[in-house]
Simulated scan of single mutants.
Amino acid sequence: MTNGKLRLGPLPKTASVKMTFMCPASLKADLDRYAALHGRTYGETVDAAALIPHMLATFMERDRGFKATGAHR
């Protein structure tokens, strides 16, 4: 376990829609490392694919330009 918290906290349970996307191998490796760290931090095994929607949602929630358009929920 780490002493600090990750920007992405424990994952909430949500309904999902399947999407497929491609990314560079280096990004996939980083996502896998982040997933491993997330699992150690919060005591729950998670794979990179499960993290991606939560990372994107967090990014969009904090994007001031996106919020300024009024397009967010």
Rank of each mutant, 00 (worst) to 15 (best):
T69L: 11
M55I: 15
L6C: 03
P12A: 09
A29R: 14
T41R: 13
E61S: 10
T2F: 06
A36P: 01
V17S: 08
G39M: 00
G39Q: 05
P10V: 08
V46Q: 05
T45H: 09
R7W: 07
H72K: 08
L31W: 05
V46C: 03
C23P: 03
F59D: 12
L11N: 01
T14L: 14
A36I: 09
N3L: 14
H54L: 06
L27K: 04
T41N: 07
V46P: 03
E44W: 03
T14E: 13
H38V: 04
A49S: 15
L51M: 11
F66H: 10
R64T: 15
P24D: 03
L6I: 12
T41H: 06
T2Y: 08
A71L: 15
K18Y: 04
Y42P: 01
A57Q: 08
A15R: 13
G9W: 00
M55S: 01
D63H: 10
A15T: 15
V17N: 07
T45W: 05
G70P: 03
D32N: 11
A68E: 08
D47S: 00
L6V: 03
L37M: 08
R73Q: 13
T14A: 12
A49P: 06
F59P: 00
L37T: 12
L11A: 00
A25I: 15
C23G: 08
T20I: 09
P24S: 05
L37G: 00
L31T: 05
L6K: 02
D47C: 06
R64N: 15
V17L: 10
Y42F: 11
H72Y: 08
T45R: 12
S26I: 05
A36M: 07
T2E: 10
H38E: 00
A49M: 11
N3Y: 10
V17K: 10
D32F: 02
L8A: 05
P24Y: 01
F59T: 14
T14S: 12
A71P: 02
H72R: 11
A15W: 04
T2V: 11
R40D: 03
A25F: 09
L11G: 02
A25C: 11
S16R: 14
M1T: 15
T14Y: 07
L37S: 06
D63W: 09
A15F: 09
M1K: 14
A71D: 10
M22H: 12
S26V: 08
H72V: 11
S26W: 05
A15Q: 12
K13I: 13
D63M: 07
